[in-house]
Amino acid sequence: MNKSDKIIVGISIGDLNGIGLEVILKTFQDKRMLDFCTPVLFGSTKVVSYHKKALKSETPVHGITSLSQLNHNKINVLNIWKEDVAVELGKATKESGEYAAKSLEIAVAHLKDKTIDVLLTAPINKETIQSDTFNFPGHTEYLEDKLDGKSLMILMTDALRIGLITGHIPISKVAEAVTPALIKEKVATMYTSLVQDFGINKPKIAVLSLNPHCGDKGVIGVEDDEIIKPTIDEIKASGKLVFGPYAADGFFGSETYKQFDGVLATYHDQGLAPFKALSFGNGVNFTAGLSEVRTSPDHGTGFDIAGKNVANPSSFKEALFTGIQIYKTRKEYKELSKNPLLVK
């Protein structure tokens, strides 16, 4: 197949000592996966071979030194370093973090240059990856720094999409960070993403409260009445279908989330704890709002099971399919937008 026929998915291999390469190899052990895309792993055939041997994997890979050598019918490994790297499965080491950063950095450079179409990131260790060149709380903040746009972390399945108004910040700083400007920014980003990335013409968005019971009319905090609700009313007046604030416990307990196309949580665990309780292992992390498409699985490095051949590839596989579908939907939306008469 030619490049024009298939979507090229670049894959950063994550922490070398974690389960990233295991779920990658398990995802592509079914050759039919190559019908959907051309995968490119940014790393080293030596490291991949180490993992294959440890896992007794027979998934074939094709080593290349340039994307000009890309084979659209194979799993390509772009060798971005030549030196031997110590792989210590299950251990968080500075070396494994350094090479995870190198894989991500070069994959993102190719994403910016549009030599790959979609970025799929395997899990990193947020401590060992830190360096002079990577000083970010996670993938999302790094990608926002390198790509155009304002990011919004969305954890998603077919039935649930949860975005975060505040991301990787201490809980002690959440209340002061939830401002009208930030709420408007995140609502706008989610709204645009639901339209262009998911093909939803008039999306309905719910915003969760900051305080328990929405503050109980000021008894447990005034932010919901004084900041969040007036901001939602202002956004709603512009024509967007935005509702809330909703108390998070009742919202998920009563399955109210099923009535909405997207949900915005005010802070990290308010959104991710119920999401993972409802769909861990099948969820996808999608970075909305940026100029390029990036997805990842909803789990971490899995050091405790690394090398044991028990990691479940379901979330990684879902992230792959989601990235491909979002890329196609966004491309179609852009084509239709060139002729406003074709946009419903």
Rank of each mutant, 00 (worst) to 15 (best):
N2W: 06
K6P: 02
I8C: 09
I11L: 10
D15Q: 03
E22N: 05
F28P: 00
F28R: 00
D30I: 01
M33E: 12
L34D: 03
L34Q: 02
T38P: 12
F42L: 02
F42W: 04
K52R: 15
K52N: 03
K53R: 14
S57H: 02
E58N: 15
T59K: 04
P60Y: 03
L67W: 06
Q69C: 11
N73S: 11
V77K: 06
N79V: 04
K82I: 03
E83K: 14
E83R: 13
D84H: 11
V87P: 04
L89V: 03
G97P: 07
A101T: 01
S103F: 01
E105W: 01
I106R: 06
I106G: 07
I106W: 07
A107I: 00
V108N: 02
K112W: 02
I116F: 03
D117E: 08
V118P: 00
E127G: 07
I129E: 04
Q130M: 02
H139D: 07
T140V: 08
G149S: 08
M156G: 01
L160D: 06
L164Q: 02
H168K: 11
H168Q: 13
P170W: 09
A175I: 05
A177N: 10
V178D: 09
E185P: 02
A188C: 01
Y191C: 10
V195I: 15
V195D: 06
Q196H: 12
F198V: 02
F198P: 01
K204R: 15
I205M: 01
N211H: 12
C214R: 14
G218K: 02
D225C: 08
I227P: 04
P230I: 07
P230H: 09
I232N: 07
K236H: 13
A247F: 13
D249A: 12
G250D: 08
E255H: 13
L264I: 11
Y267V: 08
Y267T: 01
L272R: 11
K276S: 10
G281I: 04
G281V: 05
N282L: 12
V284E: 00
F286L: 12
F286G: 03
G302D: 10
D304H: 07
A306M: 09
N312E: 11
S314Q: 13
S314N: 15
L320H: 03
Q325C: 00
I326C: 05
T329E: 11
R330S: 12
R330V: 11
N339C: 14
L341E: 15
